[in-house]
Design a binder for these strands. Structure first.
Length: 555
RNA sequence: GCCGCGGUAGUAUAGCCCGGCCAAGUAUGCGGGCCUCUCGAGCCCGUGACCCGGGUUCAAAUCCCGGCCGCGGCACCA
């Protein structure tokens, strides 16, 4: 009916007919229905059976034209970026690619006092972005653009759209909240007076807190915070030096001013940002109006929360300062560096961000969800390695060989090569997981994965005694033998597995097969029957590996 | 409190603008089966949602009103 509006007047009659038809069809037996469908309307079946897979695509950007889209990611370099920041970063990048446009990276470091930039954060953020696969075309740092902001505000002061306010904040608020803002004395100053005061601000005649520059807005705007908002304030940089420009400037633009001005000057067409910036759009639009600029399209989205993780920068900093964490890349953190360190891939993060998209409501993702996405990516490329954590020795007797070499593939697909494990006879010792001991007590026959079957002889004491049973997998199946991973005792490496759990970092010790010595930091492997882990460090002693430190990612 | 914005399965998301192809799709989770020398992966089957109440309409997840719940903002932070 959407397609044939001319039928609408007959809707009532048609509905009656349709009801009757449906009832009639429903009275037929299911088989009869199917038969009729096949005979007369096979095209419907075809349509139904067609697989409808479609790559999850981002919704189109309003007003976007190919080749003309400019997005930006504008982090504050007071800390590294976390999963929440990855959202605007990745979306800005994806849209830039989608529309073959440009992306700008802009460091917003205009508050040396309360959000003092971290000197190393500029580089660390770029490294994180690069790791995420985000590529930008231009790069700016706001603290290096101060003359530009000064120039624009001068113009606004000249035109009477801004004024210097040298009164205490309480007094301003008194006027603002009583609906008398239009009578606020500083607001009534002439442009000449304002320019003179502005120069005095620049000269350092006002101390911190003694003067600000306000943008004139609707003095009775329903949102009080919008009314004559602050564009510049004074920061005593002799006490709070800026890591990049030291004490060169004492008059600093606020976020709303600097970001608003830059978006225009840099040609940004589309701003993708979280909803806490909603009111900022309203504020910034005044500057745009006064300057005759066109405000970019804005897409606001909700917060992205990773359940069980701390996303707040200030809390993360606190944990860092208290020495509770191991660094900015602590695997318990949802910082990009932290997620990377515990074995989450950039591809998984990207997929997650695209899945969440640009929806306005908050999204709360569980780690299980992120892990599931990661698992699929990592599964086909992660080597399988055996470890016993914590280890329990098993003595195996009656081995029918003096020496036997087992070649074990690194991946069930056989595509990741293999390693060799040598076992001597007639007696040897292997480590198995302590948790598998109870398995051995229950089942008489056990298969050592990819090797041979053993039969438990004595399991009364801590030390399990077993003997060779058979070689083939078929026998193992016949005896319904559990298949477990194992590590030869004479070629075992120490392993320390760090398992992040909430705010705890649980340390588990065990042994891992010799093959782990060849791993490099950053490798993601699967410890068989334990889960996917990332190699954090391979500790070398006298030229050979002694211990491997791994961080648990997920099952 | 005041401004603004939202509510689709356990979670996330599609559909909402432009009412009917929606007895609501997809992913993940969960349950079951197959396969596999891992408790992983893969394949198959199943499970499960339109916040509530009114209204408009032949027809409402979609439009309107009210309620409830949630979120954001209310800085000389970004």
């Amino acid at each position: 009916m959407a397609e044939k509006p001319e039928l609408r007047p007959y809707a009532r009659e048609i509905v009656a007919i349709v009801r009757e038809a449906v009832a009639e069809v429903n009275r037929l037996p299911l088989d009869e229905q199917k038969r009729l469908l096949r005979e007369k309307y096979s095209w419907i079946l075809e349509k139904l059976s067609k697989p409808k897979e479609q790559e999850k695509a981002l919704p189109p950007l309003p007003g976007a034209e190919e080749g003309k889209v400019v997005t930006r990611f504008a982090p504050n370099p007071d800390f590294v970026i976390h999963l929440g920041n990855a959202r605007p970063a990745i979306l800005s990048y994806e849209y830039k690619v989608m529309y073959k446009g440009r992306m700008i990276l802009r460091f917003e470091d205009t508050d040396p006092r309360t959000k003092t930039p971290l000197p190393e954060a500029y580089e660390l953020i770029k490294e994180d972005l690069e790791w995420l696969g985000v590529r930008w075309d231009e790069e700016y740092i706001q603290s290096l653009r101060m003359p530009i902001y000064y120039q624009i505000i001068r113009e606004l002061l000249e035109k009477g759209h801004a004024y210097v306010d040298d009164r205490p904040g309480e007094e301003f608020r008194k006027y603002r909240n009583s609906g008398k803002l239009s009578e606020y004395p500083p607001r009534l100053r002439t442009p000449e007076e304002n320019l003179e005061m502005w120069d005095r601000m620049l000269e350092g005649r006002f101390a911190e807190g003694e003067a600000v520059v306000r943008i004139k807005t609707d003095p009775n705007h329903p949102d009080p915070s919008v009314r004559d908002w602050v564009a510049f304030r004074i920061v005593d940089t002799s006490r709070h030096p800026h890591p990049l420009v030291g004490d060169r400037y004492i008059v600093w633009p606020t976020y709303n001013f600097a970001a608003g001005v830059d978006d225009w000057l840099m040609g940004v067409t589309h701003i993708l940002r979280a909803k806490e910036h909603m009111q900022n759009t309203t504020k910034q639009k005044y500057v745009y109006e006064y300057m005759g600029w066109k405000y970019p399209y804005v897409v606001h989205f909700g917060r992205l929360k990773l359940e069980g993780f701390i996303m707040s920068k200030s809390v993360l900093k606190q944990l860092l300062d208290q020495g509770i964490s191991t660094g900015i890349d602590d695997p318990r953190f949802a910082t990009i560096a932290g997620l990377r360190r515990r074995g989450i891939t950039a591809e998984a993060i990207r997929k997650l961000i695209l899945e969440v998209g640009t929806k306005y409501t908050d999204a709360s993702i569980s780690y299980a969800n992120l892990a599931a996405t990661n698992r699929v990516i990592v599964d086909s490329v992660a080597r399988r390695i055996m470890a016993a954590i914590p280890p329990a020795p098993v003595v195996i007797e009656e081995l029918p060989w003096e020496k036997r070499v087992f070649e074990i593939p690194y991946h069930p697909s056989g595509e990741l090569g293999s390693r060799k494990i040598t076992l001597e006879g007639p007696m040897t010792v292997v480590y198995v997981s302590q948790s598998d001991i109870k398995l051995m007590k229950r089942s008489s026959v056990i298969r050592l994965m990819e090797a041979f079957n053993i039969e438990v002889v004595d399991a009364k004491n801590d030390k399990i005694i077993a003997r060779f049973h058979s070689l083939g997998l078929e026998e193992a199946r016949r005896y319904r033998a559990p298949i477990i991973q194992w590590v030869p005792a004479d070629a075992a490496l120490h392993i320390e597995l760090l398992v992040p759990e909430g705010l705890d970092l649980i340390q588990r010790r065990g042994v891992v097969e010799q093959a782990a010595a060849e791993l490099k930091q950053g490798d993601i492997v699967q410890l068989v029957r334990i889960g996917f882990v990332r190699v954090d460090a391979v500790e070398i002693e006298n030229g050979s590996a002694r211990k491997v430190v791994m961080i648990f990612a997920h099952e």
